[in-house]
Design a protein around this nucleic acid. Structure first.
Length: 511
RNA sequence: GCUCCCUUCGUCUAUCGGUUAGGACGCGAGAUUUUCAUUCUUGAAAGAGGGGUUCGAUUCCCCUAGGGAGCGCCA
């Protein structure tokens, strides 16, 4: 059995159906395909499974492509529309009919229902046995609608030799004659997939295990046509933290939600690839390493659970490693996707993991209540100057797990005086704290160079002279400058804010 | 219900029949520190259960239990 092209290079595809957005599980499947192609000099192509016209949705296609682009999984050529090849699918169905590997079935929906009901009543498994399989075509009711069913073997077994699942065998008696052409003349999924995969020269079909039984049926179609069966690789599913199928309740399903939460594509890729695949003890792997190391044979069979904590840790790592300019760019690209109004009113399941974009939205609503969107926030930063924004990043990126957290941490820059103090900050600014700020002001006012280093010297000197611990002095400053009790080092904050703004904020809370 | 698949710390995983069962996240303790975080040290934490096979099973086989997927003129 040949599973490669003449060149020996694999051709793989990602074939989403255009019914929703790019699901996180689909994203991993795409990643596996992409890595496999990249690592072997092969080709990675896209095919949109849009044979069901009623469910076709152009917006969904756009969202899926957008998601793949964001994840930086580039494909070769234009995405192929499966529906466009419908005539060819019909042609193959006719060929199967001609060769005696398929037959016209005049079973009506009502008759099928009947069969289902009796099967259920008699508590036996339903396998449709169409009487038309062996009936003489001349007996067919003239002009009646019919479907074309594959004349599948009833004896023996169909084997799916799978690179991930191993050798899986199905008894042919359990597989019924699947419909390959609907009564309206349109091909069904299983026919279309086989024809397209064959015509496109797909060598490896890498997809979710939910397609495993389809692989058996599709094998029968390949056999009927005398075509070479591709190498199968059915990868396990990704579940939610509770082990159940991933749903809204688990946080997020669509890849675009991960973007607004502030995950870096590289971090998400690194996280996803480790779900079901590993390379020894390696955890953080560069894209080049993944491409070099990835192999279908090393994918596990068992499903895994999605763990936001681990994703967060990886993301924090990638944020720390990223340089300031890249982070500024990413944040600027991400801002237009943030809809604070929607995020604050979003109904979140209490058991779902906390989302950093939702937390950010709430933060914004208290610091800058009038802001409704990321675009407006972006304008605020624009007004301050992006260079100043960039100046705040280095000290912040050490402490952010997501870009949304990073954004939350930089809000002090555009907060308006008098600053809205959060609960802890308000409590911290008591009479004593006000006195400390008041006493410190003259020192700061006379600090020549407004740099973090000089400011630190000035404050340390003051602390020593008054015999107080640095923390006693720094905390009131932090609260007055940022409105919070947690922030980057106060001296960095002052340097970023600038002399005038810093002093003004301090005077607001001095006694 | 039927078919197929899965089962190592809470989670992701390593282990080509012989290991004190390793790593990572998370969690606990400590150190560093202007807060938080980082960083460092350190601790607890696993072979679902029962049978075989074998000198020796986490690893191979069977059964049970639990979990998942599929059973459309959807994809």
């Amino acid at each position: 059995m040949s599973t490669t092209t003449e060149s020996g290079k694999p051709v793989v595809r990602f074939a989403p159906s255009p019914t929703g957005y790019l699901h996180i599980g689909g994203a991993r499947t795409a990643l596996f395909n992409w890595l496999y192609a990249k690592g072997r000099g092969g080709r990675f192509v896209l095919r949109i499974e849009d044979t069901d016209r009623e469910r076709n949705n152009p917006a969904a296609v756009a969202a899926i492509l957008d998601g793949l682009q964001w994840l930086q999984l580039d494909w070769e050529g234009e995405p192929v529309s499966q529906f466009a090849a419908a005539p060819r699918h019909r042609e193959v169905a006719e060929a199967l009919l001609a060769s005696g590997n398929a037959y016209r079935c005049y079973l009506t929906a009502g008759e099928l229902d009947e069969m289902r009901k009796t099967a259920e009543a008699e508590k036996r498994p339903l396998t449709i046995r169409s009487p038309w399989r062996d009936r003489d075509p001349s007996e067919a009711p003239p002009g009646a609608p019919f479907t074309i069913r594959l004349k599948a073997p009833r004896e023996g077994e169909t084997v799916v030799d799978d690179r991930v699942q191993g050798r899986v065998t199905f008894a042919n008696k359990d597989l019924d004659d699947l419909i390959i052409l609907r009564s309206d003349g349109n091909p069904t999924y299983n026919l279309a997939v086989v024809v397209d995969d064959h015509d496109m020269g797909i060598t490896h079909v890498v997809r979710g295990v939910d397609h495993l039984t389809n692989a058996a049926r599709q094998t029968q179609i390949y056999n009927g046509m005398g075509w070479v069966v591709p190498a199968w690789a059915h990868v396990p599913l990704i579940h939610g933290a509770d082990g159940a199928k991933l749903s809204k309740r688990h946080g997020a399903q669509g890849i675009e939600e991960y973007r607004t939460m502030g995950y870096l594509p590289a971090a998400l890729r690194n996280y996803l690839v480790r779900l079901g695949w590993s390379h020894g003890d390696d955890e953080i792997m560069s894209t080049d390493q993944l491409i070099a190391w990835f192999d279908i044979e090393d994918i596990n069979k068992s499903a895994s659970r999605f763990d936001f904590k681990k994703l967060d840790d990886l993301n924090a790592h990638y944020i720390r490693e990223a340089d300031t300019q890249e982070l500024v760019e990413r944040i600027r690209q991400m801002l237009p996707y943030l809809d604070f109004a929607a995020l604050t009113t979003m109904t979140v399941d209490p058991k779902a993991p906390p989302r950093s974009d939702v937390a950010l939205a709430h933060e914004v609503s208290t610091v800058l209540p009038k802001l409704k969107s990321g675009v407006e926030l972006s304008q605020k930063f624009e007004a301050k100057g992006w260079d100043r924004f960039a100046a705040a990043i280095p000290s912040l990126k050490e402490r952010a797990r997501t870009l949304a957290e990073l954004l939350s941490g930089v809000l002090y820059l555009v907060a308006e005086r008098p600053l809205a103090l959060d609960e802890k900050a308000a409590k911290l600014i008591d009479a004593e704290a006000r006195a400390v700020i008041g006493g410190l002001l003259p020192q700061l006012e006379t600090t020549a160079a407004w740099t973090a280093a000089d400011l630190e010297t000035a404050v340390r000197t003051y602390a020593e002279r008054t015999g107080s611990k640095l923390g006693k002095v720094a905390q009131p400053l932090r609260a007055a400058l940022t409105g919070r009790t947690v922030s980057p080092p106060v001296f960095d904050v002052m340097a970023v804010l600038g002399r005038d703004e810093s002093l003004a904020r301090l005077r607001d809370h001095a006694a």
